[in-house]
Design a protein around this nucleic acid. Structure first.
Length: 925
RNA sequence: ACCCGGGUGGUGGAACAGGUAGACACGCAGGACUUAAAAUCCUGUUCGCCGAAAAAGCGAGUACGGGUUCGAUUCCCGUCCCGGGUACCA
C-alpha cells in the first residue's frame, strides 16, 4: 500500500463533488464564518503559482473553522470586466465576452486541481447581466442619494428636494460648489434643468468634468502607467491633458467615516496608515493674500496652509501651473518664461511631477502682500504644487519645509528665519515647538499656540478662515471603454435621467469594433441605436463590480434583490479577507464606501465590509538566463564568463530562458534546442559537463519566461504537497521568489506520514493499543501548536510543526490509531485528500472534513523542570536544569555551585543575578 | 519625491510580550541497505580560530553606523539596498 497521490486526489475530488461536500446553506444553528479571497481578474496568461498562495491560506482557514464547528462561507468568482480583455479584442478581434469565458474556464480547471473547498454554486461573474443588473441598481442608489452632513449619512435625494422647497439650501452646503446659496423662493423659480444641475452637485454618484490623459493618435484615454515621459507607452504618441465629462463617486463626503471605521476593523497598522495617509485629513486655514500685479486683474490669492503660525516666514508663493489665475498673474517681462514652463508642465503626468527630484519653476512677475507686515512676496509657479489639493496655491516657508527650502536655495530666494537657533541655515526644520522670532506680534509665542492666534486674527480681519482639508479626491467612476458595465442613464436635454428599475439590466450591446468613439467617447458612441436612445456612452470602471461582490456571494441567485436582507443579516461582515496590499487605497476604500452607503440607505445591517484583513505577499519569479556569444549560436555556461556581458573579451547577450527547462541552475540543453526554432542550432560551452544559467528575482510574468504553472507541480507531486509547499515557503504576508527546489522536503514529509499508517508490502500497520505518555505528549504539543498557528495565519510554522510531529512519532515508532487519527484531523485543512483517504482506510465512518478538531489537554504536556541557559554578563556560558517552581534564592544557590559558573566568576562575587522564570538566568559581574 | 513594507547561514525560513540566533526544510558531505539506481534510514553542516581527529573551548555574527538595556534579529535615531502604492493595470 503506497502513497499514490494522483489516484487518491482524483478519487476524493470526484467524491466530494458527488456528495456536495462543499455546499453551504444560508441557515444553520452553527455559528457563521465568512472567509473571502480578493476577486481574481481572469487574465489570459492563466493561473501561475503566485495566485493560489492566498487561496490556499483561506482554504486552510475555512476548513479549520469547519472542523471547529462553524458554518463557513468560502466562495470564489471572477472580476471579469477589464482593460486587458478589451485590448486583446482590439488586437485580435475576439469579443471580450468570448476570451473572458475561455480564461475563466482555464482558471477554473487550474483551481479545481488544487482541491479548494469553494462552493461553486455561488460563483459570480461581474460581466454577466444577472450580476451587473445589481451593480447598476446600486449605482442608481448612489445617484439618487446625497450625503447629509448633519447626521453624516446618505439619504434619498428626495429629502433634499423637500428641504430646498421649504428653506432653500441654507442648511445644506453644496459639496460640489461651496459658494452656492439659494432660498426656497429661488428654488421655486429655477428651471427644471437648473434644479437638476444643482442636485448633481449633491449626488453621491455625479457627473462632472475632469482631466484625463488624452492620446490623439490612438484616439483614446490612457492610464497613467500607459504614459511614459509624455508619450504613450504603446507607439510613443503624444499625450496631453484633456477635459472630459466624467462620472464620479463623492467618496470625499465619507472621508471622516472611512477614518473612523478603521478603528473598528482588524487591518494591519501599515494598511490603516496607508488609508489614513491617502485620505489625508489636515487641519489648517485658507488665507487670502492681496496681490500686486502688472495686470491688476486679480486682487487676491487664496492659499491653503496647515501652518498659519509660520506666516511671517513666508518668502514666496507657489501656484499650480494649470490654474487659470496664472494668466492674470504673469507680467509682460515674465510672460514668455511662464508660457514656456506651462508647455513643459502640460507634457507631464501627475506621477512624474511628484516624483521629480529636479527643481523647476518660474516667477510670474506678480507679488502677494503679507497681511501683517505688508512685505512683498514673489509669486512663482512650479509643478510640485498640484491644482487638485487645497486651493492649488501654497505659501512657502523655506525655514520650516524641506521642499520649500530646496526651492528657495535653487532660485536664490532669501530665507527668513522665524525659529532662531532651531534653523541651521542648511536644512528646513518642520518643528511646531519653537518660539517664534522675526514674527511681529507673534514673537516669543510657541508655534503650536500661534496657529490658533493667527486663525483667530485672519477670521476677525475677514481674510481667511479655519479649514479642514482632505488629500483624497472624489473617485473617477467612468471609462471611455467598452468592456464594463453600462450606466443606466439617459441624457435628455443635457439632463441625466436614471432608467427605471424595471429597465435593468441595461445590457451591454454587441459592437463590431472596439475602436473609441468620436471626441474621446467610448466605443458605445459608435452604435447608432445606443446614441439614438440617448444612453450614456461611458462605462463603469473595473472597481464597480468588485465594490460589492462579497454581498452577492451570500445570495447569488436572487433576482428580486442584490442580496436578501435576511441573508446579509445572517452572514454579516467578511470575517477574514485575504489579498494583496496593492489594493490598499483603491478597492479597499471603494468597497468600504459602498458598504457605508448601502448601510445608510437601510439595505444592509453593517457599515464595514471586512472585519479582518490579512495581506498576502507576492510570489516573485526567479528568472533564468543563458548567455549567447554575440552574433553566434554559441551559448556560454555562466561560470565561464568574465563578466555578465563578456566571454574572453567578446560581447555576450543575456537572454531569458524558460525556467521550466532548467533544473535548479542547470539547463536541459536538449529541451532548449526544441524550445524555440531560433535555438535549434545552439551549441554549448559547458563547465563540468553542465550548462549553468544565471538568475535574477523579478516579477512573475509570461514575458520573462519565469512563470510556473501550478498544474505541473500538482502533476508531479500532488495537490496536497503543492498546498503545503506554498505555505511552507514562508509567512503568507511576505513576498518571496518561487523556487521549486524545496518541494521534495514537503513531499517526503507526506510520504513519511503515510508510512506511519501503512507499509508498501504489509499494508495497514495501525493498532488499537493504548498510547504512551511520550506519544500523547507529542500529539498534544502538536494540537496546541497547530491551533495557535492556524488562528494567527502562521501556516509556515504549522507545516514545520507537522514535520516535527511526524519525525517524533517516527522515532517513537508510534502506530496507535487513537494518536494517528487525531493527527489526520489536524492535517485535514492542509492536506485534505491524503487525510480523507487514510481516515477511511483506518476504518472511520463519514468524512474527515467534519471530524471535529481535536481537543488539547494540558495534562499531557506538563513539564516540571527546564534546562535554563545561564549567561555571564549576557553571554550564554552553560545550561542548568532547574525545577520550574524554584525561587530566586534557590536558583542563586544552584548556579553558584555550578563549576562552569564558578570558572567564569574568576573568584569575584556577582553584582546581580537575573532570573526570569521559564526563560533564562543572567549573572552580572 | 511622498506613503507603506522588507533585508537573519550556500538557499527558503524559525525565534509569538526584550531572554539559548539559525527550529523545520532544501542543498551539500559522509555512511547504511542495493549488483546498481531510485526510494528509505543514520550522521554532520553559521563563519573564523585552536586541534591529526574527536571532544571541549574561544572569538565574531541577524544590511550598515550609532544609542537604550543586565541582555537587542526584536525598541530608538541615522544611512544604504530591494519590493508595493501614488488615483484609468487589476
Amino acid at each position: 500500500m503506497e502513497y499514490s497521490f494522483r489516484q487518491i486526489e482524483q478519487k476524493w475530488q470526484q467524491q466530494w463533488k458527488t456528495t456536495n461536500a462543499y455546499k453551504v446553506f444560508n441557515d444553520s444553528t452553527r455559528p457563521k464564518c465568512y472567509v473571502l479571497d480578493m476577486f481574481p481578474y481572469p487574465s489570459g496568461a492563466g493561473l501561475h503559482v503566485g495566485h493560489p498562495l492566498g487561496y490556499i491560506a483561506s482554504d486552510i482557514y475555512s476548513r479549520y473553522k469547519r472542523l471547529k464547528g462553524y458554518n463557513v462561507l468560502h466562495p470564489m468568482g471572477y472580476d471579469a470586466f477589464g482593460l486587458p480583455a478589451e485590448q486583446y479584442a482590439i488586437e485580435h478581434g475576439v469579443h471580450p465576452a468570448i476570451s473572458t469565458d475561455q480564461n475563466i474556464n482555464n482558471f477554473r480547471k487550474q483551481l479545481d486541481n488544487i482541491g479548494f473547498c469553494f462552493d461553486w454554486d455561488r460563483e459570480v461573474r461581474t460581466c454577466e447581466p444577472g450580476y451587473y443588473k445589481w451593480t447598476q441598481w446600486i449605482f442608481l442608489q448612489l445617484f439618487n442619494s446625497f450625503f447629509n452632513r448633519h447626521n453624516g449619512k446618505a439619504e434619498p435625494i428626495s429629502a433634499l428636494v423637500a428641504a430646498f422647497e421649504t428653506e432653500g439650501n441654507i442648511n445644506h452646503d453644496c459639496p460640489g460648489n461651496a459658494r452656492l446659496r439659494f432660498s426656497a423662493a429661488d428654488w421655486a423659480g429655477f428651471t427644471e434643468k437648473h434644479r437638476q444641475e444643482i442636485l448633481m452637485d449633491y449626488r453621491l454618484a455625479y457627473c462632472g468634468y475632469g482631466e484625463v490623459n488624452w492620446c490623439e493618435a490612438l484616439g483614446t484615454v490612457l492610464a497613467n502607467d500607459e504614459v511614459v515621459n509624455g508619450v504613450s507607452e504603446r507607439g510613443g504618441h503624444l499625450v496631453i491633458k484633456k477635459r472630459l465629462r466624467q462620472w464620479y463617486l463623492r467618496i470625499t463626503e465619507y472621508a471622516d467615516r472611512l477614518l473612523e471605521g478603521l478603528e473598528r476593523i482588524e487591518f494591519s497598522d501599515a494598511m490603516k496608515e496607508m488609508q489614513t495617509n491617502w485620505i489625508g485629513k489636515s487641519f489648517g486655514a485658507e488665507i487670502d493674500f492681496a496681490v500686486k500685479s502688472e495686470q491688476g486683474a486679480l486682487n487676491k490669492l487664496r492659499v491653503y496652509t496647515t501652518r498659519p503660525d509660520t506666516i511671517f516666514g513666508v518668502d514666496f508663493m507657489v501656484v499650480a501651473p494649470e490654474l487659470d489665475i496664472v494668466e492674470c498673474l504673469k507680467s509682460s517681462g515674465q510672460a514668455a518664461a511662464v508660457d514656456e514652463y506651462l508647455d513643459y508642465v502640460k507634457s507631464r503626468s501627475e506621477r512624474e511631477r511628484m516624483a521629480e527630484k529636479k527643481i523647476s519653476g518660474v516667477f510670474t512677475g506678480a507679488y502677494a502682500l503679507n497681511p501683517f507686515d505688508g512685505r512683498e512676496i514673489p509669486i512663482w509657479i512650479s509643478e510640485y504644487v498640484l491644482a487638485g489639493y487645497g486651493t492649488g496655491a501654497i505659501m512657502a516657508v523655506p525655514c520650516g519645509d524641506e521642499r520649500d527650502h530646496k526651492f528657495a536655495e535653487h532660485f536664490n530666494i532669501p530665507i527668513t528665519n522665524i525659529i532662531g537657533s532651531l534653523y541651521n541655515g542648511v536644512e528646513a526644520n518642520p518643528t511646531k515647538d519653537a518660539l517664534l522670532e522675526n514674527s511681529g506680534f507673534l514673537n516669543g509665542v510657541p508655534m503650536r499656540d500661534a496657529i490658533e492666534i493667527v486663525i483667530g486674527k485672519i477670521e476677525a480681519m475677514g481674510i481667511g478662515h479655519r479649514k479642514v482639508n482632505f488629500r483624497m479626491r472624489d473617485a473617477a467612476f467612468s471609462r471611455q471603454r467598452y468592456w464594463g458595465e453600462p450606466f443606466p442613464i439617459q441624457w435628455k436635454d443635457g439632463v441625466a435621467v436614471p432608467l427605471e428599475e424595471s429597465a435593468l439590466p441595461l445590457e451591454l450591446p454587441h459592437v463590431d469594433s472596439y475602436r473609441p468613439g468620436p471626441e474621446g467617447e467610448g466605443p458605445l458612441a459608435n452604435i447608432p441605436e445606443w446614441v439614438a436612445r440617448e444612453l450614456e456612452t461611458n462605462t463603469m470602471p473595473g472597481y464597480a463590480g468588485s465594490s460589492w461582490y462579497f454581498l452577492r456571494y451570500m445570495d447569488p441567485h436572487n433576482d428580486k434583490s442584490f442580496c436578501d436582507r435576511k441573508v446579509s443579516d445572517y452572514w454579516g461582515q467578511v470575517d477574514l479577507y485575504i489579498g494583496g496590499t496593492e489594493h490598499a487605497v483603491g478597492h479597499l476604500l471603494y468597497s468600504r464606501m459602498w458598504t457605508k452607503a448601502l448601510y445608510d440607505l437601510g439595505h444592509i445591517g453593517f457599515d464595514e465590509p471586512y472585519k479582518k484583513l490579512v495581506n498576502q505577499g507576492m510570489i516573485q519569479g526567479s528568472s533564468r538566463f543563458v548567455y549567447r556569444l554575440h552574433g553566434t549560436h554559441t551559448y556560454i555556461s555562466k561560470g565561464l564568463l568574465d563578466r555578465e556581458d563578456s566571454y574572453q573579451g567578446k560581447q555576450v547577450d543575456k537572454l531569458h530562458v524558460d525556467v521550466n527547462i532548467v533544473d535548479g541552475y542547470e539547463l536541459d540543453t536538449n529541451e532548449f534546442k526544441t524550445w524555440k526554432p531560433d535555438f535549434a542550432d545552439a551549441e554549448f560551452i559547458l563547465e563540468d559537463g553542465k550548462y549553468i544559467c544565471g538568475s535574477e528575482v523579478e516579477k512573475m510574468s509570461k514575458s520573462k519566461f519565469n512563470t510556473v504553472n501550478p498544474d505541473l507541480i500538482v502533476e508531479k507531486f500532488g495537490a496536497d504537497t503543492f498546498r503545503m509547499y506554498e505555505m511552507f515557503l514562508g509567512p503568507v504576508e511576505i513576498s518571496k521568489p518561487w523556487d521549486t527546489k524545496g518541494i521534495e522536503g514537503v513531499h517526503r514529509f507526506l510520504k513519511k506520514l503515510w508510512r506511519l499508517f501503512a507499509d508498501e508490502e504489509k499494508g495497514l500497520l495501525v493498532t488499537n493499543e493504548t498510547p504512551t505518555a511520550a506519544e500523547l505528549k507529542v500529539l498534544h504539543k502538536t494540537i496546541r501548536k497547530i491551533e495557535e498557528d492556524t488562528e494567527r495565519f502562521s501556516f509556515n510554522t504549522a507545516v514545520s510543526s507537522f514535520m516535527i510531529c511526524v519525525n517524533e512519532l517516527h522515532d517513537l515508532k508510534c502506530r496507535k490509531k487513537s494518536v494517528l487519527e487525531q493527527l489526520l484531523v489536524l492535517l485535514t485543512p492542509y492536506a485534505p485528500h491524503l487525510c480523507e483517504e487514510l481516515w477511511q482506510q483506518i476504518g472511520n465512518e463519514g468524512s474527515v472534513l467534519d471530524a471535529g478538531f481535536p481537543k488539547f489537554e494540558e495534562q499531557y504536556v506538563r513539564e516540571s523542570s527546564k534546562a535554563y541557559p545561564v549567561a555571564i554578563n549576557g553571554k550564554t556560558r552553560t545550561e542548568i536544569t532547574i525545577t520550574l517552581d524554584a525561587d530566586q534564592q534557590q536558583v542563586e544557590a544552584i548556579i553558584m555551585a555550578d563549576p562552569a559558573v564558578v570558572k567564569w566568576l574568576e573568584g569575584k562575587s556577582p553584582k546581580k543575578v537575573i532570573y526570569v522564570k521559564n526563560k533564562m538566568i543572567n549573572v552580572v559581574i
